[in-house]
Design a protein around this nucleic acid. Sequence first.
DNA 1: CCTCATTCCTGCGGGC
DNA 2: TGCCCGCAGGAATGAG
Length: 285
Amino acid sequence: MPELPEVETVRQGLAQWVVGRRITTVEVRHPRAVRRHAPGGAHFADVLAGRTVTGVRRRGKYLWLPLDSGDAVIGHLGMSGQLLLQPADAADELHLRVRFRFADDGPELRFVDQRTFGGLSVSAGGAELPAEIAHIARDPMDPEFSDDGFVAALRRRRTEIKRALLDQTLISGVGNIYADEALWRARLHGARPTDALTGPAALRLLGHVRDVLGEAIKQGGTSFDELYVNVNGESGYFDRSLNAYGREGEPCPRCGAPIRREAFMNRSSYSCPRCQPRPRGSLRG
DNA sequence: CCTCATTCCTGCGGGC
DNA sequence: TGCCCGCAGGAATGAG
């Protein structure tokens, strides 16, 4: 599933292949892909025709493409979204949702999304920072991210650590996979209450979050080729580096205890029962 | 304001 | 064989 490292890999690919190109036509193949664009799919296509892409930016799991008009195309990959560059004569993907053609007749940009949790929209005047995503916190790879501010906000929360890590208004870019990996590195169970974390412990956790995201970005950066913007979180270039996520029953790389899986928010959490003991008094999932 | 459950969606794999 | 169900899960939304 695309989290920050996967989205950053896509951002880098788009920066290489679409910046400076002028859009000629946009084809919306599925209305759900532009459901966040309130004026509708026809307006989405109209307002983009003739515009030139001037950059590719990212905050957390959101991407946006500033345009020469001062507007921006906002993109979110959801669970299964891909942004692909394909030759114009390449066959349509089964789940092709939106197609961008360019004036240079070079490769098309295609938004492909099986489960349609992702989507695109145009933010009026949003080139610098789209208002639609202003509520998303800076991500920990952002030079302006405040470590102390994060720690203070985290400790003010009355919730559990993993819930807080997944809250994109507190820290962005972290999803289920990297939350579990950071918690494993920090030897913390995700059900630990945030307000019981000491400042130093919270800072250490943040360091692990940043480390795991950074390592994954490095691996993602090595894996995509030419005209294909790699967004396939499932193919798993980082899979071999995961210590806990998806490894139920396998030995913890640190202590050998079998990794456990617990129900969490209609999904799963993976952790080491020995390195990451459940906090006292927490209910079993 | 804060926290949390619900909902959207489709392909895959396990069970019967 | 074929059907059903659970699972994968980011984030907007509304309830409390």
